[in-house]
C-alpha cells in the first residue's frame, strides 16, 4: 500500500513555539512520513514537551502550519486533530479500570459495545495485558501503566502519535522491553509517530527518521548516518567512551 513518495503523514512548516509568553522554538520544519517514526533528541528544558503540546493542540503556537495527511489542523481544537499525546507519566484515568481506560476514546465516539470489544481485545493481547483488564490503574506497575496508556492511545487509531519520553521513569530492563514493543506495534499497525527522548540509545532504537532540538531550533537529519555523524548528538563521544572503557587504563 505504501508508495515510493507518500503524500500522507505529518508536515510542519515555519512553526514557532511559545511558552509563558516567550518564543522558545522558531522556524521548526519537518515532515514525518506516513507510518514512520521521527525520533527527536534534546536535553531537558530544550522545548521538546512544548513542541509536542503545540502539535497536539494543547500549547501555544505563535506562527506556522501543521498538516496531518494533507489536512491543515493548527486551527482545530485538540479533540479534532486526530493527534494523540502520550505523557511521560502514564496518566491513566483513576476512576476507570484498565479495560475502560483502553476503551475511553472509542466510547467517546459512542461505538457499540461489540465494536469497542473488537478493537480493544486485540490491543490487550498485543500489549500483553491479559488478566489485568479489571484492575484499578493505581495497582499496576510502572511498565504496565505505560502499556495501558500506549494501548489507550492506539485504540483511537490516531493519525499521529506523540510520545513524550514515555519510558523515562521505567527501570532499564522494562525500558528495553517497552522500546522493542513500541517498534513491533508501530511497524505492525503502521503508526505515524514522533518519539521524543533525551536518551541517545533509545532515540536510535525507535526512530526511522531523526531530529535534534537544540538552541531554540529543530534540526531534521536526512538519514541515520547523517544523524550519527553530527558530533553535537554525541554518537562519536559514546563510541570513544566504550572503546576507552575496554582499554586497560579505562576512560577518564
Amino acid at each position: 500500500m505504501t508508495g515510493p513518495v507518500s503524500p500522507q503523514g505529518l508536515r510542519v512548516t515555519g512553526l514557532a513555539v511559545r511558552l509563558g509568553g516567550r518564543t522558545i522554538l522558531r522556524d521548526v520544519e519537518f515532515t514525518v512520513g506516513h507510518r514512520s517514526t521521527l525520533a527527536v533528541i534534546g536535553a531537558s528544558g530544550s522545548g521538546k514537551t512544548s513542541l509536542l503540546r503545540v502539535l497536539a493542540g494543547l500549547g501555544d503556537a505563535a506562527a506556522g502550519c501543521i498538516e496531518v495527511d494533507r489536512r491543515r489542523v493548527d486551527r482545530l481544537p485538540a479533540h479534532r486533530r486526530g493527534i494523540v499525546y502520550l505523557n511521560q507519566e502514564p496518566l491513566l484515568f483513576p476512576h476507570l479500570d484498565v479495560r475502560a481506560n483502553l476503551a475511553f476514546g472509542l466510547r467517546l465516539r459512542s461505538r457499540d459495545a461489540a465494536r469497542v470489544a473488537a478493537m480493544v481485545d486485540p490491543l490487550i493481547e498485543a500489549l500483553g495485558l491479559q488478566g489485568l483488564e479489571r484492575r484499578d490503574p493505581l495497582t499496576l506497575s510502572g511498565g504496565e501503566r505505560q502499556r495501558v496508556a500506549f494501548g489507550r492511545a492506539l485504540a483511537v487509531e490516531p493519525a499521529v502519535l506523540l510520545l513524550d519520553e514515555p519510558f523515562a521513569s521505567l527501570d532499564p530492563a522494562t525500558r528495553l522491553a517497552m522500546q522493542a514493543l513500541f517498534r513491533q506495534v508501530a511497524r505492525s499497525r503502521g503508526i505515524t509517530a514522533i518519539f521524543v527522548t533525551h536518551d541517545l540509545k533509545e532515540c536510535l532504537r525507535v526512530g526511522d527518521q531523526f531530529a535534534a532540538i537544540r538552541d531554540g531550533g529543530c534540526r531534521l537529519y536526512e538519514d541515520r548516518p547523517a544523524f550519527c555523524a553530527d558530533p553535537a548528538n554525541g554518537v562519536a563521544a559514546e563510541v570513544a567512551f566504550w572503546s576507552a572503557a575496554a582499554d586497560a587504563s579505562g576512560p577518564d
Binding site: A56, L58, A78, V84, F93, F104, G105, L108, V156
Partner: peptide, 19 residues
C-alpha cells in the same frame, strides 16, 4: 493533564468534563 489527555483522545470539552 487528565483533561489534556482526554482532549487528545478525542473528547470534546463537554465530554472531558462529564467523563
Amino acid at each position: 493533564a487528565y483533561l489534556d489527555g482526554a482532549a487528545t483522545l478525542g473528547a470534546t470539552p463537554r465530554q472531558a468534563w462529564i467523563r
